[in-house]
């Protein structure tokens, strides 16, 4: 009996939580269909408005708690952009803040049990990474013209090595959006999938306590990962932005 139950619960697929489904029934997903992606992105927007708009409503000189958090987020990203990309990078601060706030809220909303994690979707992170990649590349060419290609020509290296290094640099440049997007989606997905696996094990009475401890531990780690991956994504964006602003090595 127990073994049968266990086998049944084991069939529960840990990846099912990532399925995109229409919110209001039906099984065809058009580009405009409101899906669980829509719902959780909308919730993220609402949470962002709640914290950053309503929280700072009073514009207090001595901030309230929510205003402190909003100011902390502002200061965090602002100093990150300034430290990594320099003063010129502050022009692009709103875009980077948008990315960071979206990712961090999506990650944390995704940690709510039974929720849908939008940042675990390759489609979402790839679009984010491609947006960064394309805009940074265009910005580089717009600001520096053909000199932007100097990014791939390592003038500090001895001359015979330079073509080889250029090839490596070009490959690494084009791999950027791939690693940039897979890192985020992969981390979020892995964390959620592992929790789901532990939850499946929790159905079996013998290892349930262990599985629950595992869930708690993984959840703790996922909280960390949720913030760290948002941070990593943002700081890499800043690094790429710095390359566009100052292409010479």
């Amino acid at each position: 009996m127990a073994a049968e139950e266990q086998a049944e619960s084991m069939q529960f697929h840990p990846m099912e939580q990532f399925t995109v489904e229409p919110l209001f029934g039906g099984d065809t997903i058009h580009w405009y269909t409101p899906t669980n992606v829509t719902l959780w992105m909308a919730l993220a927007v609402l949470a962002i408005i709640g914290l950053l708009v309503l929280g700072t409503r009073k514009r207090a000189i001595v901030p309230s708690r929510t205003q402190s958090v909003a100011e902390l987020a502002y200061g965090f990203v602002h100093s990150m952009v300034e430290d990594v990309a320099g003063k010129e990078g502050l022009k692009y601060f709103p875009y980077i803040m948008t990315l960071f706030i979206f990712i961090v809220f999506s990650n944390f909303l995704g940690l709510i049990p039974m929720s849908f994690s939008t940042t675990s979707q390759i489609a979402v992170t790839v679009v984010l990474a491609i947006l960064v990649f394309v805009s940074v590349t265009l910005l580089g060419f717009y600001l520096h013209g053909m000199k932007f290609l100097g990014l791939f020509w390592v003038s500090a290296a001895p001359l015979p090595l330079r073509p080889v290094l250029a090839i490596i640099e070009i490959i690494s440049y084009f791999v950027r959006p791939v690693s940039h997007s897979i890192r985020l989606a992969g981390n979020v997905m892995a964390g959620h999938a592992v929790i789901e696996v532990f939850a499946t094990f929790a159905g079996a009475i013998l290892i349930a306590p262990l599985a629950m401890v595992g869930i708690v531990a993984m959840f703790g780690m996922d909280v960390l990962v949720a913030f760290i991956q948002a941070y990593v994504f943002t700081i890499l964006t800043c690094v790429y932005l710095k390359d566009a602003l100052h292409p010479s090595h």
Binding site: H30, T33, A44, V45, F102, T118, Q121, A123, V127
Partner: peptide, 14 residues
């Protein structure tokens, strides 16, 4: 679908 809603979200947040 995801890309559409992501772009909408990003624009709203921006």
């Amino acid at each position: 679908n995801q890309i559409f809603w992501l772009l909408v979200t990003l624009v709203v947040i921006y």
